[in-house]
Design a protein around this nucleic acid. Structure first.
Lengths: 236, 236
DNA sequence: CCACAAACATGATTTTTATCATGTTTAATC
DNA sequence: GATTAAACATGATAAAAATCATGTTTGTGG
């Protein structure tokens, strides 16, 4: 366990209006603030494990987290990438279920834990939050269904291009405006695309040859955004 | 458009306690009952189309419906199978989005349409319903994420076995206790599995040779449930 | 009952993708 | 800064799956 310390208050949190709690009533934000437990996770540390029971939800103050599902043969499938302002752990809580996926920090990450009881109480009393929650769930469901279709119908080349664009959408670029603002291993990218690591490495090399990306270790620079969109068979 | 007629009332509906409305308060069930519009759809008829705007949700009184997503090349991907008591159309409504999928009747189906306004009003005022809704969304999200992982990691043979078991879970058997209680074309099964129609046909033949299933036109009989579970690489 | 289209079936072939094998580079640790 | 494991890279091969081709069956409307 880590040393507990607060990132100021929920009321003044930089992510307050950037999260699902954006429309929560002041009094409830106060209530959550009093019960929250702040924590820091180092890169690679686990927030929770698939199969464990949820005791609350986690709100990311700063950092990046991957949510991954374990396939029957133990192979990782990354199902979501999370960033500052994102909340995680709500799916299992609302289903009354165990966690369906594990959460691992992709870099040093500041997180606030909101205990189940207060979260549910606020959800019961604040219609605005409940609707935001339903919207969040609906959006995630939609994304999952679209991904499902692409996984079933698109070749790997297109899926990789799409994944690179998805990473860009999620984490954006560094100051230079072209380097993806996250470091993922080739294996992690493969587990996001749903393919073998070697295939991902090979195709990234192809993309480089085609001048679409530049590779520098784990740094990936997007050189030809339009061409990548085209390769993914998507319209902007 | 079809002739409008009521299937008795929501209060006395056979599906009332079998749906997401199971915990809705009596007064709200009354309110929904007054606004609902009942309808019958013939096999193959479309309830709504991907890309259209939602004006309410649909509640199935009796029948079967497929929800399918159109891939970029026009190929159908079936993302959900729905039965009596199931509600559809809520995802887009809660996202504030257009429909992400089309709904088509798999057989003659009786459906009640609940206009957006009354649905949202009830959802705002009935915490029990709101929580049931969140649970439904969470459960669907979980299913989608598991399916995603299997689609990415399992070979087609396992996915087909899994799909047959899924169909059985959803629609059950006919009176004989072994025939799947729905008629799907090979193409539809393929679009559920996420594969080519020919591959599905071939593997169904294999399953027949292995004595796992019996095929009689669109009738599929499950002969060896255990073996099918094993083929799907699942534990019961 | 016949005509005809759609669905089903199966073999042959090609394409896609995973796996295996083997180096090379990179990065972490002492 | 040498050691060593992990990650990256790439070629060769095998396996999986899609596509193409061609019949056959089934079901439907006249």
């Amino acid at each position: 366990m880590q040393f507990h310390h607060d990132y100021a208050t929920c009321q003044s949190c930089a992510q307050r209006f950037n999260s699902v709690f954006c429309k929560a009533r002041e009094e409830y934000v106060d209530a959550i603030n009093e019960q929250k437990i702040c924590n820091t996770y180092k890169k690679g540390q686990i927030l929770f494990n698939e199969g464990a029971y949820p005791f609350g939800v986690y709100c990311i103050n700063e950092g990046k987290i991957k949510l991954s599902h374990q396939g029957d043969d133990g192979k990782e499938q990354i199902i979501r990438l999370l960033k500052s302002g994102d909340v995680l752990g709500y799916r299992a809580l609302l289903s009354g279920d165990r966690y369906g996926a594990s959460a691992v920090a992709l870099e040093d990450t500041k997180v606030c834990f909101i205990p189940k009881e207060i979260f549910v109480t606020v959800l019961k009393n604040d219609t605005g939050l409940a609707f935001e929650m339903m919207k969040l769930l609906s959006d995630e469901l939609h994304k999952a269904e679209v991904k499902l279709t692409h996984l079933a119908q698109k070749p790997i080349r297109e899926r990789l291009a799409e994944t690179l664009l998805f990473i860009k959408e999620t984490y954006g670029f560094e100051e230079d405006g072209i380097t993806l603002n996250v470091r993922l291993s080739r294996e992690e990218i493969a587990n996001l695309v749903g393919t073998a690591t070697e295939s991902t490495i090979r195709l990234l090399s192809d993309f480089k040859k085609d001048g679409m990306v530049e590779l520098d270790g784990k740094k990936i620079k997007i050189l030809q955004h339009k061409l990548l969109l085209q390769t993914a068979n998507l319209q902007d």
